[in-house]
Write a protein that binds this DNA or RNA. Structure first.
Lengths: 133, 133
DNA sequence: ATTACATTTGCATCGTTGTTGCATTTAAAA
DNA sequence: TTTTAAATGCAACAACGATGCAAATGTAAT
């Protein structure tokens, strides 16, 4: 599936910024920050445009945002699997790489009386294979 | 255990700001944001002082920071139980209340080959008992 | 109680990020 | 091609994290 098709299927205008963002994330196969995406893009876009593009893509469930420690913000593509139920994210403490983990889910959620769960975020921090060696 | 004792046992100077922060969190028995703590404190402190006090208390494992959605930052007291292994946090989508959950832990962590886990953060969003009814 | 010293505080200031308003430009439909 | 709604770039602002520095404060020694 191409970036153009994704935009079309959501009735979004095909702008070079949106198309580029989707392409870059798709190729890299990792969650990327605003700056990491900017570096990989040919065009030069205003910060506001980036911000609004991310927001639009997020609202249409094309990408989702991952926040680590209140400072590092990355974006990853949504997949049908990931969209169904929440999935975990892995953060490498060494290279700051962020990856979606589909297999990890939460078991035995025992909430206090009267509490209801709606959504769960799991972030696993550690060392990735490349940094381990 | 009093706030003064906690500070003493960590060889930290007993300043009214630090003492107040610990007291307020202790009494409320909930995670509180900077502003929520400021409202409950008698003295008037500079933003920088707050910031540095939180940092100091966090570095000495007296409190820990909880971040929701990159925007809401709250602080909770460390306890011996919570300090041992990571614990989950509950966030009420209605009243924005944050609470530590000691019972919820992660099972079946299946990381990709070569990946190592060091720390895990779990945030459960939903509705608390008070907002449910 | 007084003194001395290291720590803490308040203030000014800066960088980053999220956000909005508005005029201009652009994409897509008529 | 023309039209129109949407997207962009720019300016500007608020909030937050962070640092340098002089003044104030806590603590220990005298």
């Amino acid at each position: 599936m191409k970036a153009i098709d994704i935009l079309n299927s959501h009735s979004l205008k095909r702008t070079s910024c949106r198309e580029g963002i989707i392409d870059v994330i798709m190729i890299t196969n990792q969650a990327l920050s605003e700056n990491e995406i900017r570096e990989r893009l040919s065009g030069n876009y205003d910060r506001t445009t980036f911000y609004r593009s991310f927001k639009t893509l997020e609202e249409h469930d094309i990408i989702h945002k991952i926040v680590i420690d209140n400072q590092i913000v990355k974006y990853a593509l949504d997949t049908s699997i990931m969209h169904k139920n929440g999935h975990a994210h892995f953060f490498c403490n060494e290279c700051h790489m962020v990856q979606c983990l589909e297999s990890v889910t939460l078991q035995n959620v025992e909430l206090p009386e009267g509490y209801t769960e709606e959504e769960t975020e799991i972030i696993i921090k550690g060392t990735c294979a490349a940094c381990k060696k």
